[in-house]
């Protein structure tokens, strides 16, 4: 994972191809604490080619915890397969989703 602060937002970029039942636990253990101190979190999924329901659960954990402490969170860079998943579960009802990191950073600065 890479995590960098850009224009006041913590941008986290998982370096895994599959966020699924095999890697979801590792994602939760690593990303939850990393995001804990940030007011704005951007999850850039540009390297993740596939997310399954367990991976989705890990993302939702992160989203829930971030919103619970009154911070803001957005997702960007989702690959086609991941976009399909997000659409099927209507994730946009809960979290803002952008195609690109630039769009997400613009949202963060607004």
């Amino acid at each position: 994972m890479t995590a960098e602060t850009i224009s006041g937002a913590l941008v986290m970029t998982p370096g895994i191809k599959h966020l699924d039942t095999l890697s979801a636990r590792e994602f939760s253990v690593e990303y939850g604490p990393a995001a804990a101190g940030s007011e704005i979190v951007i999850l850039d999924l540009k390297l993740v080619q596939f997310v399954d329901s367990t991976g989705l659960g890990a993302i939702l954990d992160l989203v829930r915890d971030t919103i619970a402490r009154d911070a803001r969170i957005a997702i960007c860079g989702a690959q086609p397969s991941v976009k399909v998943l997000f659409r099927m579960v209507q994730l946009a009802k809960l979290v803002t989703i952008f195609d690109t990191r630039d769009m997400a950073l613009a949202w963060a600065g607004s």
């Binding site: 399954d52 329901s53 989705l56 659960g57 939702l60 989203v63 829930r64 579960v89 009802k93």
Partner: peptide
Amino acid sequence: VPSVENFQTSGYGLYLIGES
């Protein structure tokens, strides 16, 4: 049908299969 608004974090698998 799972409820994402309620931060439901599991129970999506069979729904995704059925929807697809």
